[in-house]
Amino acid sequence: MKGVLLVNLGSPDSPTPKDVKPYLDEFLMDERVIDVPLWWRRILVRGIILRTRPKKSAAAYQKIWWEEGSPLVVISERFSDKVKDLAEIPVALGMRYGSMSIKNGLQELKDKGVTEVLLVPLYPHYAMSSYETVVVKAMEEKDQHFPEMHITTLPAFYNNPDYIKLLSDSITNGLKDFDYDHILFSYHGIPERHIKKSDPTKFHCKIDGQCCSTNSVAHNTCYRHQCFDMTEKIKQYLGLSEDKVSLSFQSRLLNDPWLKPYTDFEFERLGKEGVKRLAVITPAFVADCLETLEEIAMEGEEQFKSAGGEDYKHIPCLNDNQEWVNLMVNWIHDWQLKEMLPA
């Protein structure tokens, strides 16, 4: 029997330091998030970061927390329920970090008789700290607890034409009644070294301004290329002027070189250069979360207006948009059909 496991990032159980701390510990101790030797990661995370970060992060979560719970979890549950209603096969939801685990999701499917699973990391792009860690964790749980299961993973869908159309239409809808001067595509940031570590050729990804536009097998796992490629495809679909669009990366950690340009620097630059009406989209996420609702929608507006900007529009993620639900169901049906076809 076939089934689907949708997986997103996760969330603490409550916006309190007590619940944020173990969540951050699990997240930051992931070797694909902070990719340093274990001994150094322990010192860094448990000896330094977790002494102050839980209180600060809890305060940020409190600003965006809904009555029903974490926005990311609530939105993911709504999306999952809608997919479940249309998919005609069992659908479960898991999170990479937190109490709503991947193991629990696989157990839910097993209890319904599922032996063949379509794993869907809810990330449009491939990155070792998002897509890859979901796949690795799911396979670890399968090998340890569900050896009878067979798992197939949905590829990253950053360049899927149907997804580009859906996201572009969502941007158009979000820009209604907003006469923008500029659109900023703000993607989740990762360290530059992650790009090079994910390069199967070990020589193509130089982050030199040319490698992302030079065809290579490395693009299959290059987050930076995929972000630029998605932006270009949306620009082309919507017919956006080159001088009215830019791309940036948010959420830096520590002092390592991360992908540039930095989103907070872009807010300041655009405001100082005379942009008055700024629209921001966050295409690395399919569901609004702490990064989009607090860092972009709240802090970003303050940063932009402090630099001289006047009007600011954060365009929501796809969330549980019915067209997004329908597209996911179509992908699930495609997988079922391929699985049923003779080899």
Rank of each mutant, 00 (worst) to 15 (best):
C317S: 10
D311R: 13
D81W: 10
L270K: 03
K313H: 04
L293N: 06
H225Q: 07
I183A: 03
S14E: 11
W331D: 03
E132H: 11
F157E: 00
A297W: 07
W65P: 05
T292P: 05
F249I: 12
K276N: 15
R53H: 11
S168V: 05
K235G: 00
H225N: 09
S11E: 00
I190E: 03
K244Q: 15
Q236S: 13
N160D: 15
F203M: 12
V83P: 11
L240R: 06
Q250E: 08
F265Y: 11
D177V: 13
V286K: 04
D19L: 06
K206Y: 06
E299M: 13
D256S: 15
V217T: 12
L278K: 05
A156D: 03
P342S: 06
S186M: 05
A127Q: 00
K313E: 00
C317H: 04
K202R: 13
H125E: 07
V120N: 07
D177I: 10
V329E: 12
A279N: 09
G300I: 01
A58M: 02
L50R: 08
D179F: 12
R41Q: 08
L24F: 08
Y123L: 02
D229S: 14
F285E: 07
Q250I: 01
D179A: 13
M139F: 13
A284H: 04
L38T: 02
D13W: 00
